[in-house]
C-alpha cells in the first residue's frame, strides 16, 4: 500500500490514539470521513469544534458541562443536603441515569492506587471537606466501585472526613445481589457480602 502523506496521515494518526481504535480501524474511519465529506465529516468537525470551545470542567464538583458551575451545581432544586462522591464523570452519568438521586455530586477524578502511583494529592480530595461544610451537607454518599481500590478510597475518605467534618453522616452504596441476578450464577464473594448487608423485611 502506498504510504499516506499530509493531512490524511495526520488524521489517521490522531484517530489511532482514540480508545478502541487501532491503525486499521483508523484508516477505515478516515476513508469513510473523506468519502462522506458533507454528510459525516463536516458535521463531525463542527461538533468537535463546538465541544472543544464550550465544554468546561466545573470548578465546584469536577463534572463536565458547557457552563461553570455546571448545571447540576447551579440547580437550586437539587437537594444540597446530600453530596454523592463518585470516581469519574462516567460514574456521575451512571447515577444520573437512574433518576433516583436528586442531590449534588463531587467527582474525585479517579481512585487511590499505590500501584498506579495515584495518591490523595492527585485526586480532588482536599476540597471535599470544604464543599461539605460550605453546602451544609448532612450526608455524604460514597458511590465508589466495589473493588479493592474503590473501597480503600472509601475508607480513606471516611477517615479524612470523620476528623475534618465530624457529625456529617457518611454512607456508601450497598453491595450484593444485582437486580435480576440469580444466586446460582453469583460468585461466593458477592453472596457473602450480600448476606452481611441483608436487610429486614
Amino acid at each position: 500500500m502506498a504510504q499516506q502523506r499530509g493531512p490524511l496521515d495526520s488524521l489517521i494518526k490522531a484517530l489511532t490514539g482514540l480508545p478502541g481504535l487501532g491503525p486499521r480501524s483508523a484508516r477505515r474511519i478516515a476513508l469513510h470521513l473523506v468519502m462522506n465529506r458533507g454528510k459525516v465529516m463536516e458535521p463531525l468537525v463542527a461538533a468537535l469544534e463546538e465541544t472543544a470551545r464550550s465544554v468546561k470542567i466545573c470548578n465546584a464538583c469536577g463534572n463536565i458541562d458547557v457552563c461553570d458551575p455546571c448545571r447540576i451545581c447551579a440547580d437550586v432544586r437539587r437537594d444540597a443536603r446530600f453530596l454523592c462522591v463518585v470516581a469519574g464523570v462516567a460514574d456521575l452519568w451512571a447515577v444520573e441515569r437512574t433518576g433516583a438521586y436528586k442531590g449534588k455530586y463531587h467527582v474525585l477524578g479517579g481512585l487511590l492506587s499505590a500501584l498506579d502511583g495515584v495518591g490523595p494529592d492527585d485526586l480532588r480530595i482536599a476540597a471535599l471537606p470544604d464543599r461539605v461544610r460550605n453546602a451544609q451537607a448532612q450526608e455524604v454518599i460514597l458511590a465508589l466501585s466495589a473493588t479493592v481500590d474503590g473501597q480503600a478510597t472509601a475508607h480513606y475518605l471516611t477517615d479524612r472526613m470523620a476528623s475534618a467534618i465530624p457529625g456529617v453522616k457518611i454512607s456508601r452504596l450497598a453491595h450484593g445481589v444485582p437486580v435480576g441476578g440469580e444466586l446460582d450464577y453469583l460468585d461466593d464473594g458477592t453472596i457473602a457480602t450480600a448476606l452481611k448487608s441483608r436487610a429486614a423485611l
Binding site: 499505590a114 466495589a146 479493592v148 473501597q151 480503600a152 475508607h155 471516611t158 477517615d159 453491595h175 460468585d187 461466593d188 464473594g189 458477592t190 457473602a192 457480602t193 452481611k196
Partner: peptide
C-alpha cells in the same frame, strides 16, 4: 479463573482491607 473471592470479605472493614492490601 476465579476460585474464591477472598477480597470481598474484607471490603467492609478498613483495617482488614488494609491488611490484605
Amino acid at each position: 479463573e476465579q476460585d474464591r473471592n477472598l477480597a470481598a470479605g474484607c471490603m467492609d472493614d478498613a483495617l482488614r482491607l488494609g491488611a490484605l492490601l
